[in-house]
């Protein structure tokens, strides 16, 4: 009975971590549908963003942004500034990688690109380890008091509300971008039918640059949100994220950004709720089990179409 009583609270945690996974999954889905390959470096791009935010925090303070905590949150405006700087820096790194590596492999085939991305994952991780060491880096040492949501009997921290709100806000922004901007439409067109997009006069390289920018920005923010939620980050973070994120993406239908959003929340909730029944140590394996079940039952994903 006690197990069941914990479930509403676990659902809340699941939505929080799931919304982070969603942001990561949307990025994987975008690169998959426009560039045509599964980017196994995406987890490490998220980790890079999380580390860059820490590194750029002094720069944000130097710009004169106040470090006083924002309301009930555990961080101040300077941290939001660092987040924005980290997003820009992550985009710069990813675009450089595209320029020196992925661009040369455009015609080399999907699987070569996947292998290259595995190498990038390894490289980014070792770079992180070189710069920041293998020990955890702490975002905030402060313990934040959780607030009880009246009527539901579940607790949530202000930081967690910030995380979910940020994820929802960014997803909405992305939706508007894809629906209504010229480049957003070009991205959707390229994902839909790259050959026809070319015939229509859409410049594939520009679309690819924008895809990396969106994917890397969402990845950086997602990595930083993980830092806020877990309070610390480690170099292995990226590799550990890969499985739940890809499970989310496949659950939602590979290449379907909206599906990845739903998939992320489903995986996050399943992982958290599983801890009521299973050892917490197996949380990462839950994503794998869901993935395999999904592949057995409906490999096109919840929202996926055929093909």
């Amino acid at each position: 009975m006690e197990t069941l009583a914990r479930i509403p609270q676990l659902l809340v945690y699941g939505v929080v971590s799931g919304s982070i996974l969603s942001l990561g999954g949307i990025g994987v889905s975008l690169t998959y549908s426009v560039l045509g390959f599964s980017n196994f470096a995406h987890g490490d791009i998220m980790a890079l963003g999380a580390y860059l935010a820490l590194a750029l925090l002094p720069a944000a303070s130097a710009l004169g942004i106040s470090g006083r905590p924002l309301g009930a949150l555990s961080f101040g405006a300077d941290f939001v500034g660092a987040l924005l700087l980290a997003v820009v820096a992550t985009c710069a790194v990813v675009l450089t990688l595209d320029r020196i590596l992925f661009r040369r492999l455009r015609n080399a085939g999907r699987i070569t690109l996947m292998i290259a991305s595995v190498g990038v994952a390894l490289g980014l991780r070792s770079l992180i380890q070189f710069c920041w060491g293998p020990q955890p880096q702490y975002y905030s040492a402060k313990i934040q008091r959780a607030q009880v949501i009246p009527g539901l009997g579940v607790k949530i921290k202000p930081d967690q509300i910030f995380i979910v709100a940020t994820a929802i806000g960014l997803t909405l922004l992305l939706h508007l971008f894809l629906r209504h901007t010229r480049i957003g439409k070009a991205m959707r067109a390229t994902a839909d039918n790259a050959a026809l997009a070319r015939v229509t006069g859409i410049n594939a390289e520009r679309v690819i640059v924008w895809t990396w920018i969106l994917g890397a920005s969402l990845a950086a923010v997602a990595g930083i949100l993980i830092g806020i939620e877990n309070k610390f980050i480690m170099p292995e973070l990226g590799w550990q994220l890969l499985l739940p994120i890809f499970a989310a993406v496949i659950l939602g239908g590979l290449g379907n950004a909206y599906g990845a959003m739903v998939g992320g929340v489903v995986i996050g909730v399943c992982e958290e709720v599983s801890t009521a029944f299973l050892s917490t140590a197996y949380k990462p394996a839950v994503a794998f089990v869901i993935l395999i079940l999904m592949l057995l039952v409906r490999p096109t994903g919840i929202l996926g179409r055929r093909g």
Partner: peptide, 8 residues
């Protein structure tokens, strides 16, 4: 063939 963007 494939002369439209089907999901648009």
């Amino acid at each position: 063939v494939d002369n439209v963007f089907p999901s648009l």
